[in-house]
Design a protein around this nucleic acid. Sequence first.
DNA 1: GTCTATAGCCGGATAGAC
DNA 2: GTCTATCCGGCTATAGAC
Lengths: 192, 192
Amino acid sequence: MPYSAEHKKQSRERILLSAIDLFCRRGFDQISIAQIMQHAEMTHGAFYAHFSSKVSLYAEAILTAGRHSLLVRKGGDLDKEKMRYLVTEYLSMEHVRQEGYACPLAFLSTDVAHRDSEVRASYEKVFNGMVDRLAQALEATGRSLQTARAQAQYLVVTMVGTVSIARSLSDTESQKALLENSKSSLFAMLAD
Amino acid sequence: MPYSAEHKKQSRERILLSAIDLFCRRGFDQISIAQIMQHAEMTHGAFYAHFSSKVSLYAEAILTAGRHSLLVRKGGDLDKEKMRYLVTEYLSMEHVRQEGYACPLAFLSTDVAHRDSEVRASYEKVFNGMVDRLAQALEATGRSLQTARAQAQYLVVTMVGTVSIARSLSDTESQKALLENSKSSLFAMLAD
DNA sequence: GTCTATAGCCGGATAGAC
DNA sequence: GTCTATCCGGCTATAGAC
């Protein structure tokens, strides 16, 4: 065969990375398959050798984006200091402006709500993964399993809500103020 | 003239209400002008006698939805008891399922982030209106202006984030658990 | 102001050559 | 597997009669 399995895998990966970037930037409907493929340096027609439909790409892209997100990217254990650093990065203007990897939970929340159950299952999986990771870290700081889980869930919800709203505001100063305000409240919670 | 000014005003209002309902349910791109007009009991062509484009309708619909939202609908002063009631209603499954009026902040956040500045300015206006309203109520309970504003902003962000994420989850039980968890955290904040 | 009809465009998905 | 070309449906917006 003229193309190796390895080559196919790489093409598929390029499509996924391209899709994540563009979907987070402009949403599912505003991005065409042609744009995704162009960004991945291929042509429109090649798409269907890798994915069965645009929606199924979306579901998989969300999972991949979850693995790349800064909430799970940091390897190893999260101590108190790393937790504070993570919150700071999440609630930064760089994240809001999508200058690095974007968190799909914050960038695609209402977009996902309108899709079928496959897409929403992906979203839920990413959400649970992040909560689990943070809960584990909070438990290691002496909290009970129950409060660790409750606080982790609350932490994710607030961070996601903050970034999501900040992205919808038109004024830069308002965005910064919003990020700072949430950050200090969450730091207070983590300080206990 | 065959149609009175009053009649035109009513048609326009019907279009706006139809648009709010449908946009919140499925997002801007997934709803066509034909669907909005059909739901308002008119035909496609009549639309442009009332709005110059679909986007300009969107910007105005967000403002109207903000005025109908339960966060501002309750007239008069908000005492402590009413605040608790409001949070409970906002974080209810009825709201998540859009059985009554939906809050555009929670239902359209990432959708708005991808639009032009006119739409985002509408969103920002609604957001500020809600924060102002809650800040006023919190100040009346003895808090300083500064902490009242900070807590109001935080309150809105958390409620919006919670509902927004809940709508993207695929499992009903997870949705309920999420709502309950945020509710108890926010009640604790309000109790001070 | 509202209707029917249509222009004009774009996007998802498929066909077939290489 | 990737390319070019195309089908087909749906959409925004406009035209013109009533």
